[in-house]
Design a protein around this nucleic acid. Structure first.
Lengths: 155, 155
DNA sequence: TATTGTTATACTCTATAACTATA
DNA sequence: TATAGTTATAGAGTATAACAATA
Protein backbone atom coordinates (compact mmCIF):
# COMPACT_ATOMS: atom_id res chain seq x y z
CA UNK A 1 0.00 0.00 0.00
CA UNK A 2 1.05 3.61 0.03
CA UNK A 3 -0.51 6.40 1.96
CA UNK A 4 0.23 9.92 0.87
CA UNK A 5 3.21 11.27 2.77
CA UNK A 6 3.42 14.44 0.70
CA UNK A 7 0.83 15.97 -1.65
CA UNK A 8 2.97 15.38 -4.73
CA UNK A 9 2.01 18.73 -6.22
CA UNK A 10 4.14 20.27 -3.46
CA UNK A 11 7.20 20.80 -5.58
CA UNK A 12 7.43 20.88 -9.36
CA UNK A 13 7.06 17.16 -9.80
CA UNK A 14 5.15 17.87 -12.98
CA UNK A 15 8.40 17.77 -14.91
CA UNK A 16 9.07 14.26 -13.57
CA UNK A 17 5.96 13.09 -15.35
CA UNK A 18 7.69 13.98 -18.60
CA UNK A 19 10.32 11.32 -17.93
CA UNK A 20 9.95 7.89 -19.59
CA UNK A 21 8.69 6.55 -16.29
CA UNK A 22 5.62 8.77 -16.57
CA UNK A 23 4.50 6.74 -19.59
CA UNK A 24 5.48 3.36 -18.21
CA UNK A 25 2.45 1.13 -17.91
CA UNK A 26 3.83 -0.74 -14.89
CA UNK A 27 4.47 2.50 -13.09
CA UNK A 28 1.03 3.87 -13.86
CA UNK A 29 -0.48 0.60 -12.72
CA UNK A 30 1.43 0.74 -9.44
CA UNK A 31 0.47 4.34 -8.80
CA UNK A 32 -3.19 3.85 -9.68
CA UNK A 33 -3.32 0.79 -7.47
CA UNK A 34 -1.69 2.62 -4.58
CA UNK A 35 -4.29 5.37 -4.80
CA UNK A 36 -7.10 2.85 -5.08
CA UNK A 37 -5.83 0.76 -2.18
CA UNK A 38 -5.35 3.76 0.09
CA UNK A 39 -8.85 5.05 -0.67
CA UNK A 40 -10.35 1.58 -0.29
CA UNK A 41 -8.68 0.80 3.01
CA UNK A 42 -9.70 4.18 4.40
CA UNK A 43 -13.31 3.53 3.42
CA UNK A 44 -13.28 0.02 4.88
CA UNK A 45 -11.53 0.92 8.15
CA UNK A 46 -14.73 2.06 9.94
CA UNK A 47 -16.13 -1.42 9.28
CA UNK A 48 -13.04 -3.08 10.76
CA UNK A 49 -12.01 -4.38 7.33
CA UNK A 50 -9.13 -3.96 4.91
CA UNK A 51 -8.94 -4.78 1.22
CA UNK A 52 -7.86 -8.35 1.97
CA UNK A 53 -10.47 -9.21 4.57
CA UNK A 54 -13.15 -7.45 2.56
CA UNK A 55 -12.32 -9.60 -0.45
CA UNK A 56 -12.59 -12.80 1.56
CA UNK A 57 -15.88 -11.66 3.06
CA UNK A 58 -17.32 -10.77 -0.34
CA UNK A 59 -16.39 -14.17 -1.77
CA UNK A 60 -18.05 -15.85 1.19
CA UNK A 61 -21.16 -13.72 0.79
CA UNK A 62 -21.35 -14.55 -2.91
CA UNK A 63 -22.15 -18.15 -1.97
CA UNK A 64 -19.48 -19.50 -4.24
CA UNK A 65 -18.43 -21.76 -1.35
CA UNK A 66 -14.69 -21.38 -1.84
CA UNK A 67 -12.19 -23.56 -0.05
CA UNK A 68 -9.29 -21.80 1.61
CA UNK A 69 -7.08 -23.13 -1.14
CA UNK A 70 -9.30 -21.56 -3.76
CA UNK A 71 -9.28 -18.27 -1.89
CA UNK A 72 -5.49 -18.36 -1.86
CA UNK A 73 -5.32 -19.01 -5.59
CA UNK A 74 -7.92 -16.40 -6.53
CA UNK A 75 -6.51 -13.67 -4.29
CA UNK A 76 -2.92 -14.67 -5.11
CA UNK A 77 -2.07 -15.13 -1.45
CA UNK A 78 -0.16 -17.85 0.27
CA UNK A 79 -2.50 -20.41 1.90
CA UNK A 80 -0.94 -19.59 5.27
CA UNK A 81 -2.06 -15.99 4.92
CA UNK A 82 -5.60 -17.09 4.20
CA UNK A 83 -5.61 -18.92 7.52
CA UNK A 84 -5.01 -15.64 9.37
CA UNK A 85 -7.68 -13.80 7.36
CA UNK A 86 -10.28 -16.52 7.90
CA UNK A 87 -9.36 -16.78 11.58
CA UNK A 88 -9.97 -13.07 12.04
CA UNK A 89 -13.30 -12.97 10.24
CA UNK A 90 -14.50 -16.13 11.94
CA UNK A 91 -13.57 -14.87 15.41
CA UNK A 92 -15.82 -11.88 14.71
CA UNK A 93 -18.71 -14.09 13.68
CA UNK A 94 -18.76 -12.89 10.08
CA UNK A 95 -17.92 -16.16 8.34
CA UNK A 96 -17.78 -19.85 9.19
CA UNK A 97 -15.58 -22.77 8.26
CA UNK A 98 -17.75 -25.59 7.02
CA UNK A 99 -16.17 -29.00 6.51
CA UNK A 100 -16.39 -30.02 2.87
CA UNK A 101 -18.43 -33.28 2.75
CA UNK A 102 -16.60 -34.33 -0.43
CA UNK A 103 -13.12 -33.76 0.96
CA UNK A 104 -12.65 -33.92 4.67
CA UNK A 105 -9.32 -32.10 4.40
CA UNK A 106 -10.94 -28.97 3.03
CA UNK A 107 -12.94 -26.18 4.65
CA UNK A 108 -15.59 -24.31 2.75
CA UNK A 109 -15.95 -20.67 3.75
CA UNK A 110 -19.47 -19.30 4.08
CA UNK A 111 -20.87 -16.04 5.42
CA UNK A 112 -23.08 -15.67 8.48
CA UNK A 113 -26.05 -13.29 8.56
CA UNK A 114 -23.88 -10.81 10.43
CA UNK A 115 -21.27 -11.19 7.72
CA UNK A 116 -23.80 -10.47 5.00
CA UNK A 117 -25.01 -7.37 6.79
CA UNK A 118 -21.50 -6.05 7.30
CA UNK A 119 -20.54 -6.81 3.70
CA UNK A 120 -23.47 -4.76 2.44
CA UNK A 121 -22.51 -1.75 4.54
CA UNK A 122 -18.83 -2.10 3.66
CA UNK A 123 -19.66 -2.44 -0.03
CA UNK A 124 -21.52 0.86 0.01
CA UNK A 125 -18.51 2.60 1.54
CA UNK A 126 -16.06 0.94 -0.81
CA UNK A 127 -18.09 1.76 -3.91
CA UNK A 128 -18.43 5.35 -2.86
CA UNK A 129 -14.68 5.65 -2.37
CA UNK A 130 -13.99 3.93 -5.66
CA UNK A 131 -16.35 6.21 -7.50
CA UNK A 132 -14.59 9.25 -6.09
CA UNK A 133 -11.31 7.88 -7.34
CA UNK A 134 -12.29 7.82 -10.98
CA UNK A 135 -14.78 10.65 -10.87
CA UNK A 136 -12.98 12.21 -13.81
CA UNK A 137 -13.81 9.22 -16.02
CA UNK A 138 -16.97 8.86 -18.04
CA UNK A 139 -19.01 5.71 -17.29
CA UNK A 140 -18.02 4.23 -20.65
CA UNK A 141 -14.35 4.84 -19.86
CA UNK A 142 -14.72 3.11 -16.53
CA UNK A 143 -16.20 0.04 -18.18
CA UNK A 144 -13.45 0.06 -20.77
CA UNK A 145 -10.80 0.32 -18.06
CA UNK A 146 -12.27 -2.63 -16.21
CA UNK A 147 -12.29 -4.64 -19.44
CA UNK A 148 -8.66 -3.86 -20.23
CA UNK A 149 -7.52 -4.55 -16.69
CA UNK A 150 -9.32 -7.85 -16.74
CA UNK A 151 -7.33 -8.89 -19.78
CA UNK A 152 -4.16 -8.41 -17.77
CA UNK A 153 -5.43 -9.64 -14.43
CA UNK A 154 -7.06 -12.82 -15.68
CA UNK A 155 -4.95 -15.98 -15.84
CA UNK B 1 3.64 -7.60 -4.25
CA UNK B 2 2.41 -11.10 -4.86
CA UNK B 3 4.23 -13.89 -6.49
CA UNK B 4 2.26 -16.81 -7.74
CA UNK B 5 1.99 -19.42 -5.03
CA UNK B 6 -0.52 -21.50 -6.95
CA UNK B 7 -1.38 -21.41 -10.65
CA UNK B 8 -4.92 -20.14 -9.98
CA UNK B 9 -6.34 -22.31 -12.72
CA UNK B 10 -5.56 -25.26 -10.45
CA UNK B 11 -9.03 -25.57 -9.00
CA UNK B 12 -12.26 -24.22 -10.46
CA UNK B 13 -11.60 -20.65 -9.50
CA UNK B 14 -13.35 -19.61 -12.68
CA UNK B 15 -16.64 -19.51 -10.80
CA UNK B 16 -15.12 -17.05 -8.32
CA UNK B 17 -14.66 -14.60 -11.16
CA UNK B 18 -18.43 -14.51 -11.46
CA UNK B 19 -18.71 -13.00 -7.99
CA UNK B 20 -19.12 -9.22 -7.65
CA UNK B 21 -15.45 -9.03 -6.75
CA UNK B 22 -14.54 -10.18 -10.24
CA UNK B 23 -15.96 -6.94 -11.63
CA UNK B 24 -14.61 -4.70 -8.92
CA UNK B 25 -12.25 -2.12 -10.41
CA UNK B 26 -10.11 -1.95 -7.26
CA UNK B 27 -9.69 -5.70 -7.25
CA UNK B 28 -8.79 -5.83 -10.92
CA UNK B 29 -6.33 -3.01 -10.38
CA UNK B 30 -4.71 -4.86 -7.48
CA UNK B 31 -4.46 -8.09 -9.41
CA UNK B 32 -3.14 -6.50 -12.58
CA UNK B 33 -0.57 -4.61 -10.53
CA UNK B 34 0.50 -7.74 -8.69
CA UNK B 35 1.07 -9.52 -11.99
CA UNK B 36 2.92 -6.55 -13.42
CA UNK B 37 5.09 -6.12 -10.32
CA UNK B 38 6.00 -9.77 -10.15
CA UNK B 39 6.96 -9.86 -13.83
CA UNK B 40 8.84 -6.58 -13.53
CA UNK B 41 10.83 -7.56 -10.46
CA UNK B 42 11.74 -10.89 -12.04
CA UNK B 43 12.99 -9.12 -15.15
CA UNK B 44 14.97 -6.57 -13.13
CA UNK B 45 16.51 -9.03 -10.68
CA UNK B 46 19.40 -10.06 -12.98
CA UNK B 47 20.41 -6.38 -13.05
CA UNK B 48 20.35 -6.16 -9.26
CA UNK B 49 17.31 -3.89 -9.35
CA UNK B 50 13.72 -3.93 -8.17
CA UNK B 51 10.79 -1.80 -9.26
CA UNK B 52 11.65 0.85 -6.68
CA UNK B 53 15.35 1.18 -7.37
CA UNK B 54 14.73 1.00 -11.12
CA UNK B 55 12.31 3.91 -10.86
CA UNK B 56 14.84 6.03 -8.98
CA UNK B 57 17.54 5.15 -11.49
CA UNK B 58 15.33 6.02 -14.45
CA UNK B 59 14.44 9.39 -12.97
CA UNK B 60 18.13 10.10 -12.41
CA UNK B 61 18.97 9.05 -15.96
CA UNK B 62 16.23 11.27 -17.37
CA UNK B 63 18.25 14.31 -16.24
CA UNK B 64 15.28 15.84 -14.48
CA UNK B 65 17.62 16.49 -11.52
CA UNK B 66 15.12 15.51 -8.83
CA UNK B 67 15.77 16.20 -5.17
CA UNK B 68 15.20 13.31 -2.79
CA UNK B 69 12.07 15.10 -1.61
CA UNK B 70 10.75 15.21 -5.15
CA UNK B 71 11.51 11.53 -5.62
CA UNK B 72 9.56 10.76 -2.47
CA UNK B 73 6.56 12.78 -3.64
CA UNK B 74 6.58 11.39 -7.17
CA UNK B 75 7.03 7.77 -6.14
CA UNK B 76 4.70 8.17 -3.16
CA UNK B 77 7.35 6.95 -0.76
CA UNK B 78 8.37 8.29 2.61
CA UNK B 79 11.54 10.44 2.38
CA UNK B 80 13.27 8.02 4.74
CA UNK B 81 12.73 5.20 2.26
CA UNK B 82 14.29 7.26 -0.51
CA UNK B 83 17.44 7.58 1.61
CA UNK B 84 17.89 3.82 1.59
CA UNK B 85 17.22 3.55 -2.14
CA UNK B 86 19.66 6.33 -3.00
CA UNK B 87 22.25 4.91 -0.57
CA UNK B 88 22.09 1.58 -2.33
CA UNK B 89 22.36 2.93 -5.85
CA UNK B 90 25.10 5.35 -4.88
CA UNK B 91 27.16 2.66 -3.16
CA UNK B 92 27.08 0.77 -6.43
CA UNK B 93 28.30 3.79 -8.37
CA UNK B 94 25.10 4.14 -10.40
CA UNK B 95 23.98 7.56 -9.18
CA UNK B 96 25.44 10.49 -7.27
CA UNK B 97 24.17 12.97 -4.72
CA UNK B 98 24.98 16.46 -5.96
CA UNK B 99 24.48 19.36 -3.55
CA UNK B 100 21.86 21.77 -4.86
CA UNK B 101 23.59 25.17 -5.28
CA UNK B 102 20.28 26.95 -4.72
CA UNK B 103 19.45 25.12 -1.48
CA UNK B 104 22.28 23.68 0.50
CA UNK B 105 19.88 21.41 2.40
CA UNK B 106 18.89 19.54 -0.74
CA UNK B 107 20.62 16.85 -2.78
CA UNK B 108 20.03 16.51 -6.47
CA UNK B 109 20.20 12.94 -7.76
CA UNK B 110 22.04 12.39 -11.03
CA UNK B 111 23.12 9.25 -12.87
CA UNK B 112 26.69 8.20 -13.53
CA UNK B 113 27.80 6.72 -16.84
CA UNK B 114 27.60 3.27 -15.26
CA UNK B 115 24.07 4.10 -14.11
CA UNK B 116 23.04 5.09 -17.61
CA UNK B 117 24.44 1.89 -19.05
CA UNK B 118 22.68 -0.27 -16.48
CA UNK B 119 19.42 1.62 -16.92
CA UNK B 120 19.47 0.92 -20.64
CA UNK B 121 19.99 -2.79 -20.14
CA UNK B 122 17.39 -2.95 -17.38
CA UNK B 123 14.89 -1.01 -19.46
CA UNK B 124 15.17 -3.55 -22.25
CA UNK B 125 14.43 -6.38 -19.82
CA UNK B 126 11.58 -4.52 -18.17
CA UNK B 127 9.96 -3.58 -21.46
CA UNK B 128 10.17 -7.12 -22.70
CA UNK B 129 8.50 -8.42 -19.55
CA UNK B 130 5.85 -5.73 -19.70
CA UNK B 131 5.12 -6.51 -23.30
CA UNK B 132 4.59 -10.16 -22.48
CA UNK B 133 2.16 -9.19 -19.76
CA UNK B 134 -0.27 -7.48 -22.11
CA UNK B 135 0.51 -9.45 -25.18
CA UNK B 136 -3.21 -10.08 -25.60
CA UNK B 137 -3.88 -6.37 -26.02
CA UNK B 138 -3.73 -4.53 -29.32
CA UNK B 139 -1.33 -1.58 -29.41
CA UNK B 140 -4.25 0.84 -29.45
CA UNK B 141 -5.71 -0.86 -26.38
CA UNK B 142 -2.39 -0.54 -24.56
CA UNK B 143 -2.26 3.18 -25.25
CA UNK B 144 -5.86 3.56 -24.14
CA UNK B 145 -5.13 1.67 -20.92
CA UNK B 146 -2.16 3.91 -20.16
CA UNK B 147 -4.32 6.95 -20.77
CA UNK B 148 -7.08 5.76 -18.47
CA UNK B 149 -4.65 4.73 -15.75
CA UNK B 150 -2.98 8.08 -15.97
CA UNK B 151 -6.29 9.76 -15.21
CA UNK B 152 -6.45 7.83 -11.96
CA UNK B 153 -2.76 7.90 -11.10
CA UNK B 154 -2.19 11.58 -11.72
CA UNK B 155 -2.73 14.00 -8.83
C1' DT C 1 2.69 -40.00 -3.07
C1' DA C 2 0.11 -35.58 -3.28
C1' DT C 3 -2.90 -32.15 -1.18
C1' DT C 4 -5.45 -29.20 2.64
C1' DG C 5 -5.04 -26.59 6.39
C1' DT C 6 -1.96 -25.12 9.88
C1' DT C 7 2.09 -23.35 12.58
C1' DA C 8 6.49 -21.20 13.04
C1' DT C 9 10.07 -18.29 11.50
C1' DA C 10 12.73 -15.04 8.93
C1' DC C 11 12.58 -11.42 5.90
C1' DT C 12 10.98 -7.26 3.46
C1' DC C 13 8.27 -3.37 3.36
C1' DT C 14 5.96 0.50 5.59
C1' DA C 15 4.85 4.04 9.06
C1' DT C 16 6.32 7.15 12.66
C1' DA C 17 9.01 10.00 15.35
C1' DA C 18 13.06 12.33 16.33
C1' DC C 19 17.36 14.74 15.16
C1' DT C 20 20.72 18.17 12.20
C1' DA C 21 21.53 21.60 9.12
C1' DT C 22 19.86 24.81 6.51
C1' DA C 23 16.09 28.23 4.95
C1' DT D 1 9.04 28.51 12.17
C1' DA D 2 9.38 25.40 8.39
C1' DT D 3 11.87 22.26 5.26
C1' DA D 4 15.63 18.57 3.38
C1' DG D 5 17.92 14.79 4.62
C1' DT D 6 18.93 11.30 7.97
C1' DT D 7 18.53 7.75 11.64
C1' DA D 8 16.19 4.45 14.51
C1' DT D 9 12.49 1.54 15.54
C1' DA D 10 8.17 -0.76 15.63
C1' DG D 11 4.65 -2.71 12.96
C1' DA D 12 2.47 -4.76 8.91
C1' DG D 13 3.00 -7.60 5.14
C1' DT D 14 5.31 -11.56 2.70
C1' DA D 15 7.90 -15.81 1.72
C1' DT D 16 9.39 -20.41 3.17
C1' DA D 17 9.57 -24.66 5.27
C1' DA D 18 7.71 -28.03 8.00
C1' DC D 19 3.86 -30.83 10.07
C1' DA D 20 -0.74 -33.75 10.75
C1' DA D 21 -4.80 -35.35 8.57
C1' DT D 22 -6.74 -36.90 4.48
C1' DA D 23 -6.91 -38.17 -0.48
Amino acid sequence: MATTPAPDTAAGTDRLWASPLGSDLSFLLARANAASLAAGNAALAPHGLKARSYSVLELAVADTRPSQRELAAFLRLDPSQVVALVDDLQSRGLIERQPDPNDRRANVVIATDAGRALAEAARASAESAEHALHASLAPADRARLAELLRAIATP
